[in-house]
């Protein structure tokens, strides 16, 4: 029988520093064992527990898309002990992962629909996965509209790709920062109010929201006001985690475990869960 507590061995293939403060780093990881790589089937929205032996584990959303190839991408914000240790990793080092864990964005349902992606800060990780996934079979989906906010221009992750997305004709990208900065050509304002201003149409559209809790909290009512029904609003939640497989009892909101029943929930589901927000 599989042992879900034992990490899969990975090699750090490439590290990219995302911000001038060097708090955000993106890691491309390669499977040491090819078979393990073949067995690792995932979809956008899922996450892994990344493991530094001797230091512990932490959950991170998978930022790569399965359509991209065999490397797994994670972007890690330095927040505490394990993330601090991850930031010491160098290219070529070994690291463990457990996963893929959790559920995923409703990619099947998205077929034939317009997609509105709303993200904030470094939580854009799994949204990148989703966006790359959708662009990978572009013909299957309608309009793709992305609203992405960060505190200031430095804090957007995947800046090279943003440049590329900006120039694409088959999607729209709206970047916004919290307050005005010289030389900024994008929008200004918090994600919820920018979403209200842009007022994207809800017709045949699925909204996917991921970001800091406060952003999610204030964005969902805006979408409701724009006419999105609860069944067409999805978001990804965060809770402190350990096991990732519904046993350690830590990550629940109401009767649902974020690690196995989530992290992706529709607003319709969340309405029935106490303490969701």
């Amino acid at each position: 029988m599989d042992n879900s507590y034992v990490p899969i061995r990975m090699r750090v293939e490439k590290i990219a520093v995302e911000d001038p403060e060097r708090n955000l780093r993106t890691y491309d990881l390669a499977f040491e064992d090819e078979d393990a790589g073949k067995r690792f089937n995932y979809l956008p929205g899922q996450f892994c527990e990344m493991s530094i032996l001797g230091k512990g584990e932490s959950p991170f959303g998978i930022a790569s898309s399965p359509s991209e190839g065999d490397l797994l991408k994670f972007t890690v914000n330095r927040a505490g002990s394990v993330t601090g240790e991850i930031h010491y990793l160098r290219e070529g080092d070994a690291v463990g992962i457990r996963g893929p864990l959790g559920n995923w964005y409703p990619v099947e349902k998205l077929k034939g629909m317009n997609v509105l992606i709303i993200g904030g800060g470094f939580a854009f990780t799994t949204l990148r996965s989703l966006l790359v996934y959708l662009l990978g079979s572009r013909g299957d989906y309608g309009d793709i509209n992305v609203i992405y906010g960060a505190r200031n221009p430095d804090l957007f992750i995947y800046k090279n790709e943003i440049e590329e997305w900006r120039t694409r004709e088959d999607m729209e990208l709206h970047l916004t920062i919290d307050s005005p900065v010289d030389g900024w050509s994008g929008m200004t304002g918090f994600v919820p109010s920018v979403t209200g201003e842009l007022a994207p149409g809800q017709e045949n559209t699925m909204a996917i929201v991921c970001g800091p809790p406060i952003m999610i909290k204030f964005t969902l009512p805006v979408l409701t006001e724009l006419g999105f029904p609860d069944e067409r609003i999805y978001t990804s939640l965060e809770r402190r985690m350990k096991c990732g497989i519904g046993k350690c009892g830590r990550c629940n909101i109401g009767s649902r475990y974020v690690c196995i029943d989530g992290p992706v929930f529709s607003l319709a589901q969340l309405r029935n869960i106490p303490e969701a927000f």
């Binding site: 032996l53 046993k247 350690c248 009892g249």
Partner: peptide
């Protein structure tokens, strides 16, 4: 009650989870 934590206990480069 079944809640648990997972921790690493190391001595040098050896240890157990």
């Amino acid at each position: 009650c079944h809640c648990f934590d997972i921790q690493d206990e190391s001595q040098g480069s050896e240890g157990r989870r």
